[in-house]
Design a protein around this nucleic acid. Structure first.
Length: 296
RNA sequence: GCUGGGGUAGUGAAGCGGUCAAACACAACAGACUGUAAAUCUGUCCUCUUUCGAGUUCGCAGGUUCGAAUCCUGCCCCCAGUA
């Protein structure tokens, strides 16, 4: 099916493990990496942040002691970090890991990050904060007008202000991607039944609170404010509401579970359109990858 | 028991005689997404139908009216105040 094995001096394969949040991909990756001399690169747009440990369900110190992890704690929560940054970082790590004779594992739920690497996205221009600030003050209608006047092609999501602003920023510069994954990659998706995933997600919600998300969020909120980009996702806004007595603890847990569930669904929507993903249940995925890694 | 308020689609909640299958929000479901992606945005969401459209709804049963979720009567529930 793939010709990797016929390459003269095939590099270590790039093992890519994707799946929705709470599908168990991290635990699987650690187990396999430990067994086959792997190192893990987390493709996760939230665990890149320092200090956000509990709320992002970052791999624990114990887990990190078992296998080297990369891609964690890269920037402070108030710093910008983009898919383009990640792509560059991940490629560098993949090289380094291979040079050590180890197997790189790219593991994560941020589809864009994974795709940037495996489809070798060529990004266009960088963010232009000044321009963005100016455009952000305009309404979506005004932005459409601006595009019409400057011959800027509207994105498919033309009601998405972020996308329209980015389109203006790009000024029709092209972006590209490979039509097939980069060579030597093997891409596995963790398939999980819906109700199992739901159960795991709500169990994890409980776990987050036992581990002290409230305390963590309090510290982060004071330090970085509640409006920074990193703090707007997942559980932090909910904990904020709880701290301000706008929600009870029970409500926060319930809401977070649904937020996380919706995240899982969006992740799956993204992954579904990638025909190169080989989907397996957790145990089958392990068997499949073990077999694959044993031959190498 | 009396007085006042209320029972609307999965949930909350508008509507208070025609333009109502019924605003809005949430949930649910599907989708888009290359420099903020755990973000952001879109569609569907009573039933049947691919579309046009058709058929049943607004606690229950009657009534008034050309026409009712909206008015009247009775009944059943719920909440607040009070014997």
């Amino acid at each position: 099916m793939k010709d990797d094995h016929f390459l003269a001096s095939a590099p270590q394969p790039l093992v890519v493990i994707v799946g929705p949040t709470a599908s168990g991909k991290t635990a699987l990756a650690i187990e396999l990496a430990e067994q086959y001399g792997g190192e893990i690169i987390c493709a996760d747009s939230r665990t890149i942040y320092k200090e956000m440990d509990i709320g992002t369900a970052k791999p624990t110190p114990d887990e990190r002691a078992r296998v080297p992890h990369w891609g964690l704690d890269l920037v402070a929560p108030n710093e910008r970090y983009t898919a383009a940054d990640f792509k560059q970082y991940a490629n560098q790590k993949i090289d380094e890991i291979r040079r050590r004779g180890h197997v790189p594992f790219l593991v994560g739920g941020t589809g864009l990050y994974v795709d940037a690497v495996i489809f070798d996205y060529q990004f266009s221009s960088k963010a232009n904060d000044k321009l963005r600030a100016k455009l952000n003050a305009l309404s979506i209608e005004q932005l459409h007008g601006y595009c019409a006047k400057h011959n800027i092609i509207l994105p498919e999501n033309k009601n998405n202000k972020r996308y329209v602003i980015r389109a203006i920023e790009q000024n029709n510069q092209p972006t590209t991607r490979k039509s097939a994954p980069i060579s030597a990659s093997i891409i596995v998706g963790i398939a999980t039944e819906r109700d199992v995933l739901r159960t795991r997600i709500s169990a994890r919600t409980e776990q987050l609170f036992e581990d002290g998300v409230v305390e963590e969020a309090t510290i982060l909120g004071e330090k970085y404010g509640w409006n920074s980009e990193a703090m707007t996702g997942n559980i932090y806004p909910l904990v904020h509401a709880y701290l301000e007595n706008r929600l009870t603890l029970a409500e926060v847990k319930e809401k977070y579970t649904t937020v996380d569930w919706r995240l899982a669904k969006r992740q799956l929507t993204w992954l579904r359109r990638n025909p190169y993903i080989q989907w397996y249940g957790l145990t089958e995925a392990k068997q499949f990858l073990s077999r694959h890694l044993a031959i190498e």
